[in-house]
């Protein structure tokens, strides 16, 4: 992993974090069983989505290049959206069993 992480660690990890926030904000807005916070309005979520997505893309564009950064963000959010709902379901199921 080392070329991009060693040369641009701040931009890589920053982009990863911003990308994760983007994917989570997208997840909570999608229909189904998600932890939709009551105080998070639709417009605030959309602004958050645009900001986090934009920041992730800008940070990763410096590490991977502009077009690869777009596909990296797409792949990262696809992987997050596949895994996070399953982990959330396991968490909710365990909580309801213990309470």
């Amino acid at each position: 992993m080392r070329p991009e992480v060693v040369t641009e660690p701040v931009f890589f990890w920053g982009g990863l974090l911003a990308g994760a926030i983007w994917a989570v904000l997208l997840w909570v807005q999608l229909p189904g069983q998600t932890p939709r916070p009551e105080r998070l309005s639709r417009s605030a979520a959309i602004v958050g989505l645009i900001l986090s997505g934009g920041i992730a893309w800008i940070l990763w564009a410096r590490v991977f290049g502009a077009i690869p950064a777009f596909f990296c963000l797409g792949g990262w959010s696809m992987a997050m959206l596949c895994i996070v709902p399953i982990l959330w379901a396991i968490l909710v199921s365990n909580q309801s069993r213990t309470s």
Binding site: V5, F71, C72, G75, A79, C82
Partner: peptide
């Protein structure tokens, strides 16, 4: 090249390689 790179995961270095592992297992 982009069409093939999106199949092989040959962009974005090691990060995309591990990302493709996750997507492949999914």
């Amino acid at each position: 090249t982009w069409c093939l790179a999106l199949h092989f995961g040959s962009f974005g270095g090691e990060f995309v390689r591990w990302l493709y592992v996750a997507l492949g297992l999914c």
